[in-house]
Each structure stands twice: as C-alpha cells, then as structure tokens.
Design a protein around this nucleic acid. Structure first.
Lengths: 221, 221
DNA sequence: TGTACATCAGTGAACGCGCGTTCACTGATGTAC
DNA sequence: TGTACATCAGTGAACGCGCGTTCACTGATGTAC
C-alpha cells in the first residue's frame, strides 16, 4: 500500500555525493517552513518523510533539527537582506525609503512562515546570536534610509534617528504580522498601507509617496 | 518523595461544590498562560499538575483543553476590553485617544503570554469566531477615538477612518509584539513610542501629545 | 588482473518522553423510605 | 431513627500517537596490494 507520494524508492546517492542529501534536506525544511503555519510543526521526522529517508539519516548531515533549521533560516535571511540592499538603491533618498519598506512588507507577506520564524515568536535558541546581529543590519539599513529621507543632517540626532527607525520598523512589522495573523479583517491594499506609513514616519505628503510607489516596478498588489 | 510543591494532599471538594475545581482550573490555566512564552506549552496535563489533580479530572468540567483555554481567553479579553472602555473616557477626544493607545500597549506588555495568544499567532480554532467579533469591537473603539481626535466629521470619510484605525492598530500591535519578541533591541521607553505613534497617526504636534501623556495617572515607565 | 578491505550513504528497530483521551472504579455524602 | 441507595468529585491505569535520539547494521563502491 503506497500511501505517500514520496515513497517511490529513493535511490541512494553515489559514492562521493553524500552532500546531495544535505541539499535536499535544506530544501525540504525550507518548503515545510514556508507551507506550515506554526514553526513547531516543522519536525525532524517530517523533514525525513518529505525527502523519503529514515529519520536517523539526518544526523549524518546535521547535528539536530535546530542545526538544520538554522541553515534554512540563514538562507532566507540572506535572501531578504539581498532584496533590501537591492531596494536601497536610488538617487533620491525618499525613493530608497519607499522601496525598502515596500520590499520588506512584500517579502514578509509572501513568506509568512519564514517571516514568522525569523521575526515573530521567540527566535529559536541557536539562532538568537546570529539573527540578532543580522537583524540589526536590516534595522540600520532602514534607519539610514529613513534618516536620509527626512534629511536631518546633524550627527547629534543619532539617537532620535535610531528611535525613528525602530518605530518605523515596528509599524512595518506589525503590518506584516497582523495581516498574516488576522485574515478576518477587511484589509486595505498593503501597498496603500505602506505608503501611508512611510508618509507619516517621514513627514512627507502622502501624494508624493503615492506617486513614487506608483512609479516603482513590480505589481502594485 | 514529594518532588512537586503542589503535591500536598489536595482535599476533595465538598458535595455541592464541584464548581470550585472549575475555578481552580481556570486560574491555573491563566497562570500558565501568563508565565509560559509559547502557548502550545500550555497542556492539559500541565494544568492538572498545577492544580494537583489527575489529568482525567479536567473532563468533568471542560470538554477538552481548548474549551478551558477559551474560557481563560474570554476572561482576559474582557479584562482588556474593560480597560480600554474605561480609558476611552474624557472630554477631549485626543486625550481619549492617547489613553486608549497607552492602555492597550501597557496591557500587552504586561501580559505578553496572554497578548500573544489573543492577538499573535493563529488564533486557536474554537476562539476564532468569538475573538474575531470581539476584536472588531476593540478596533471600532480605537478607530472611533482616532476619528474623533483627528476631527474629520464627514460621514463619507468612514472608509478612510477605518483604514486609519486599522493602521494605527497594526502599529500598536507591532510595538507590543516586537518589544516582547526582540528583547535584544535597545528600546526607547514604550510611552515615548506610543506618544510618537499617536502624534503621527493623529497628525498632532508631538509636544501636545507628550503633555497629555504626562498628565495621565499611572507610572510613565 | 584479482581480491581483501576501508569507506561511504543510509537503514531499521528500539528507547523513553509527554501528550490527549478512555474507561471502569472508589469512596464520601446527601436523601428517600 | 436507622439504612439502602443514588449522586457527586475525582482517581488510576491504560491506550495509541508522534516525537528526538541511539545503536548496531547493511550493502554498494572505491582503493591498496
């Protein structure tokens, strides 16, 4: 009785190519992370089942489930970081800010499982150190974009700038989490919400921000 | 060998007073909910251990764990709702708004476990209907306070008002969740953040809001 | 060219754990006759 | 006033489940002599 589709006689990898399974494990874990709504449903045995191997086989490639999860999160994190860095590229500071914020929210909404595991809930034990440091990178990037856009040049404003960056991030974060967690609410388009948030936090005219957002590539939701 | 402190020979309740245990169960579940950081650690057996009864005894009072949890959440929800309604009482609309926002954030920060279960993560299955409806009440309250404070009187603005209320709520929500989930960040005082958010979302001068907040009773953190 | 051997990739059975849920039960207490 | 009985509050053992982790193993493949 072949109940599972993945049961189809996995062929053992050739001699020197044991690392192939490692890649498959990462891919399977990533897939599960993306599809499953709460992270604790991502179990070692589930990953093994997905790939079609014995649960014990994972230990040849990762110390434990957390080690595997950490690798996956690392990749996702890098993906988001790359996107934000790429978005943070324009001559006009306010355009950079709009692009960064929109890219952040978009990624979060498109990857609810990953976002939740990275930024929501208590961060997994092993990740805390790494994620914390890297999370600061993103916060610094956002804070810089906001400071550039508001144009306060004085160095003495650093503390204020940091507070403003943190606050903008918490708002974007709340937007991503709230939309994912409360699908029952009749949400406005997320792009409109981002536009409003950017306008408020950067003290800009909403029409100006809206025009900038409209000129960006990518579907407007 | 008495390992647990709660093991001390619980005496059976007298004849007509079986409902006492019910209350104890609710209290124990509430306590666990408050102390435990992720809600899925709140198990039926843990509650039973906390009260000092056999796991099976819970079934005399609740259909299952979810039924129990639902009762607890109902109480917490009512508690928050009462607080917000009480806060939404002042002659000046902007004062009401500040008080409501501050009360919301304060409650969330003081009850991270409960807040997380109520508003974060996917709402437990059985709760979804109830919570959803009641959550709307709070959102309506907040939206009304914001609309009053911004003073747009036209009825045609309803949609805009709702969008503004939703956005303010997502920001407050993000504030509560982010502070709870990312203790590593060097957070400004939460009251300052609330002041800034209210000023931004209500298009008020920050100094004005700050003065209002300072005049409120309760420690300013 | 043949063969012993080490290595590699992965298996399969078993372990103990905590969990939700069931089921027949126990023993005290109030009530009916 | 005494006694049989129903009810109430809760017990204790057992079940099957999925989990992470361990351990000795298997069988194919490359390499050394």
């Amino acid at each position: 009785v072949s109940t599972d589709p993945g049961v189809t006689a996995r062929t053992r990898n050739p001699r020197g190519q044991g690392a192939i399974l490692r890649g498959q494990l990462v891919a399977a874990a990533a897939s599960l992370l993306a599809s499953v709504d709460h992270p604790e449903a991502l179990t070692l045995r589930r990953v093994a089942r997905e790939v079609g191997i014995a649960p014990a086989s994972i230990y040849g490639h990762f110390a434990d489930l957390e080690d595997l999860l950490q690798h996956v999160l690392q990749l996702r994190y890098q993906e988001l970081a790359d996107i934000l860095v790429a978005a943070n590229d324009d001559e006009r500071a306010v355009v950079r800010l709009v692009r960064v914020c929109a890219a952040y929210v978009r990624w979060g909404l498109e990857h609810p499982g990953e976002y939740r595991t990275l930024f929501g809930g208590r961060v997994p034990v092993g990740m805390s150190g790494t994620t914390h440091d890297r999370g600061k990178e993103l916060l610094v990037l956002l804070t810089g974009a906001l400071a550039d856009a508001t144009g306060s040049e004085r160095a003495a404003d650093i503390e204020r700038q940091e507070a403003a960056g943190i606050l903008l991030w918490t708002s974007l974060h709340g937007l991503v989490e709230a939309r994912a967690e409360h699908p029952g609410i009749r949400w406005p388009a997320w792009s409109e919400q981002v536009i409003t948030l950017v306008a408020l936090h950067a003290s800009r005219d909403r029409g100006e921000i809206s025009e900038i957002a409209a000129s960006l590539p990518g579907d407007p939701n």
